[in-house]
Amino acid sequence: MTGPLRPAFHEGQVLAAADLSATVAHARGVAARHARHLHEWGIAEGLELVTVPRTDPLTNARYVEVRVSAGLAVDGTGREVVVAEPVVLRESDFASVNGADQPTDEPYPVFLTALDRDAAQSSAFAGACGATAGSTRVEESYQVLFGRLGDERLVADQQPPEVGAAPADPSTRWLVLLGYVRWTEGHFTGVASTAREVGLRYAGVRADTVAARAGALTLRTSPTVQEGQPAVVLSGGDPPSLVFGLYQGSGSVAPLMTVAANGNLTIAGSFSGRTSGGSVLVQTGTATDGMLLPLPAGVTPQQVADGRVVLHVQLTPRPPLTHSATALHSPVEATVDGERRVRCRVRLFDPVAAPGKVVEQPGAVDFLILAAVAATNGGG
């Protein structure tokens, strides 16, 4: 199989229509293969479903007019799909596809696909010198399609063309999901960006290396800088650093975590995570009879149950609160069972206020828990 053919010309050559078409086709092929293999297909700009409130003049029912905003998508064949200006979705088109369905609150998918159309041509030279009249322009247009419930899953099943395939109309349309519309009693009533766990797909990039020319590389979660949104900044300055933080109103990034060139880690908050093997975690406090003792932070009941963490518990009975200065007390029980439930009883005797009377009541203990993590499993 030969590779892509690039047209070549020489002096005195008579140029046929096929020669000029081949020049255009070669450029289109280069652009399509670049988009197809160096980028992830999806929405690149705009193409949002926008609603405008409306009222039905016959029934006074409230509904919405749905528009697709202007924008650009790149489909899985590497072809650009340009929507140059907002387009209003026609309710009659939706009804022809889904009008026979039973009423439902489920949203219906809306797709965008590329479509070629013969553009209107100038008649100035049409038919001159015996030339065959025909369109000299092709409009690289689009079509908005309504799908049936569940058709959004077809998007993931689409297969890109072969590596060297030219950008041509595929036998099956390539669908770009724009979102979902809700339909009630003959009108659109709302839109959604996700339904049945299928959301929009946005264009991306495929690369093993991303190099910054200005000496710093920034990753953020939205196209524009927004205060309070996260960002990661890799800086090659003096000294170099890796910073994770949040955007401030000034557009700078307030560091929450910084990794310096020497490996030092600086964080603005607290540090928590999986317990390392061989470590000992501590929890202290006071508990009364019947309470469950808490586990140290980072330790789960499952880790204790399967032996990955061993608990050592020490209980110290606390003197009971009494209103008598002559009362005597003695602990009867200060234990903890296998469920970490405290059992504490204390005996009171006041030889002055109530001679000969002994009272037994619930008590309280100070506890110390040492959680030893087995050195062979990393505490996970």
Rank of each mutant, 00 (worst) to 15 (best):
Leu112Arg: 01
Leu295Gly: 00
Arg33Tyr: 10
Arg345Gln: 10
Pro4Met: 04
Ser252Trp: 14
Gly338Val: 10
Phe146Ala: 08
Gly273Ala: 05
Ala212Glu: 05
Thr224Lys: 05
Pro355Ser: 12
Pro317Ala: 15
Arg318Ser: 09
Phe349Asp: 07
Val74Lys: 06
Arg345Ala: 04
Gln302Leu: 15
Val373Leu: 11
Val310Tyr: 14
Ser141Thr: 14
Asn377Ile: 10
Leu58Phe: 07
Glu65Cys: 06
Glu106Phe: 09
Ala95Gln: 14
Arg62Pro: 03
Val30Cys: 02
Ala297Leu: 12
Val336Thr: 05
Leu72Asn: 01
Thr136Gln: 05
Ala297Val: 14
Gly12Gln: 08
Ala261Glu: 15
Ser193Gly: 00
Ala84Pro: 13
Pro4Phe: 10
Ala354Val: 03
Gly307Ile: 08
Gln229Ala: 12
Glu11Arg: 08
Pro230Arg: 05
Val299Pro: 08
Pro109Met: 08
Ser96Tyr: 14
Val74His: 11
Glu65Arg: 04
Pro160Trp: 09
Gly164Met: 01
Val282Arg: 12
Tyr63Asp: 00
Phe349Ile: 02
Gly273Phe: 09
Thr51Glu: 14
Glu140Asn: 13
Thr284Asn: 15
Gly199Gln: 15
Arg36Asn: 06
Arg33Leu: 06
Ala168Phe: 05
Gln13His: 10
Leu175Phe: 07
Ala32Arg: 02
Arg36Cys: 13
Thr172Asp: 09
Asp306Gln: 04
Thr194Val: 05
Ala211Arg: 02
Val138Pro: 02
Pro53Trp: 04
Thr59Phe: 07
Pro160Leu: 05
Leu15Tyr: 11
Ala166Asp: 09
Arg33Glu: 13
Ala231Arg: 01
Arg62Ala: 12
Leu321Cys: 02
Arg201Pro: 14
Arg206Ser: 11
Leu368Trp: 08
